[in-house]
Simulated scan of single mutants.
Amino acid sequence: MGGFIMGYKNDRTGYQKTLLASRAVIKKDSFAIIPHDGLVKNTIPGFENVDVSILGSPRIGAGFVDYIATFQKGGKHTGFGGDGIETVAYVVKGKLKVTDGKEEDVLETGGYAYYPAGVKMMMENAQDEPTEVFLYKKRYQPLEGYEAHKVVGNTKDQKPEEYEGMKDVLLWDFLPKELGFDMNVHILSFEPGASHGYIETHFQEHGAYLISGEGMYNLDNDWYPVEKGDYLFMASYVPQAAYAVGRGEPLAYVYSKDANRDPEI
């Protein structure tokens, strides 16, 4: 069907019993909310037996590309990244084998891998059940005298940082604070009732995939409801902040941020 198949995340197709509606908000070069209800499957070379949807991309104004992918039994990618492109894989749920052709790692739920530019990441589902993975790629911006290196870890093995001194807002960093890295990936988690301390307005852009909970997100000074499975894009300088709502589950999302580089002119 022209490179896509309808109904990726909810498999809701055909005749509907309700009026069509969506929480999607797309403001190109500014921000976007892409709900899980309405995502479509994309046909992308390299993915085999994988349900995958393209989320953030240059077409929306991002300097990176994000995907959400469900690797079915035997599902794999034959070579993600390479040729100047750095990559990150984060396992939302399941078990994923990653390799650069030399070393092999198995990432379980909460696990992640960063491969530097020029190194292709081969991926394969490491269980019979489906494995859900958030994927990121970006063209690396070199800095003379510094370089990035492969990083593999799991958030379950880390002690989170209290975000700006707030005990009910926790932060996990994926990558070391080294100038060789031109970006980082984090998880930010808000207990119900918690929020950012202020409306942020900054140079860095974000792509964020919500992995749990419900909340209200401020984007360009309007508030929008968001929930697990939604994707957010935030361009440079877009005002942004979150409140967690709901019961019994934190609002948490995995997100990318460009870092450690001076703006080019």
Rank of each mutant, 00 (worst) to 15 (best):
G2F: 15
G2N: 11
G2S: 12
F4K: 12
F4H: 15
M6H: 06
M6Y: 06
G7E: 01
Y8P: 04
Y8G: 07
R12L: 11
Y15G: 03
T18E: 14
K28F: 08
D29P: 00
F31C: 01
A32L: 14
A32F: 13
P35W: 05
P35H: 07
P35Y: 06
H36V: 10
H36Q: 09
H36I: 13
L39R: 10
L39H: 05
K41M: 13
N42C: 08
P45R: 10
F47C: 03
F47A: 02
F47V: 00
N49M: 13
V50M: 05
S53H: 12
I54C: 01
I54V: 15
L55P: 01
I60E: 01
G63S: 13
F64Q: 01
V65N: 00
V65P: 00
D66L: 09
Y67E: 01
G81I: 00
G82Q: 12
G82A: 13
D83R: 07
G84F: 04
V88M: 15
A89Q: 00
G94W: 06
G94V: 04
G94M: 07
K95S: 13
K95H: 08
K97I: 00
K97Y: 03
G101L: 14
K102E: 07
E103S: 03
L107S: 10
E108F: 04
T109L: 10
G110V: 06
Y112F: 15
Y114D: 04
P116M: 07
G118Q: 04
G118C: 07
V119W: 09
M121V: 05
N125A: 07
D128I: 00
P130C: 02
Y136K: 04
Q141L: 09
P142V: 02
E144I: 07
G145F: 08
Y146W: 14
K150I: 08
K150Y: 07
V152D: 02
P160D: 01
P160Q: 03
E162P: 00
E164M: 13
D168P: 06
D168L: 11
V169M: 01
L171N: 04
W172T: 03
F174N: 04
L175V: 04
L175Q: 09
P176S: 11
M183S: 10
V185D: 06
H186R: 10
H186E: 03
E191Y: 14
E191T: 08
P192F: 12
P192W: 11
G193Q: 09
G197T: 14
T201Q: 12
T201L: 11
T201G: 12
L210E: 00
G213H: 02
E214G: 05
E214P: 03
M216K: 09
N218E: 11
N221G: 10
P225E: 06
P225I: 03
E227H: 11
K228S: 14
G229V: 00
D230G: 09
L232N: 05
M234E: 13
A235G: 09
V238L: 03
A244E: 02
A252T: 05
A252K: 07
Y253R: 06
Y253W: 14
Y255F: 15
Y255Q: 08
S256M: 10
N260R: 12
N260I: 13
I265Q: 14
I265L: 15
